[in-house]
């Protein structure tokens, strides 16, 4: 549950966003995020909250790690 999950931002509505985690759509809160994000950006998702903006490269590296240790998208 401590894992940081990479997510891609699809839509932004104020402090809420629709995001995609390994192809699954979910909503996420942007309440704790310091940066502003736009559709197409990656964020580090933890327990339903975006905590930080991520580069695409960081997101891919983390996704590969999670896949390899057999832990899919979880919180």
């Amino acid at each position: 549950m401590c894992l940081a999950i990479p997510a891609r931002v699809l839509e932004v509505h104020g402090t809420e966003a629709v995001i995609s985690v390994q192809g699954v759509q979910r909503s996420a809160s942007l309440m704790l995020l310091e940066e502003t994000v736009a559709p197409g950006d990656y964020v580090l998702l933890h327990a339903g909250f975006a905590l930080r903006k991520w580069t695409a490269a960081e997101a891919q590296e983390q996704e590969a790690l999670l896949a390899e240790v057999g832990l899919g998208p979880r919180d």
Binding site: A4, S29, L32, A47, G48, L51
Partner: peptide, 17 residues
Amino acid sequence: GIGFETTAPTTAGALLE
């Protein structure tokens, strides 16, 4: 609510809401 410095703000966010 379990977890460390990374998770506690998410609980806090929900509680404030």
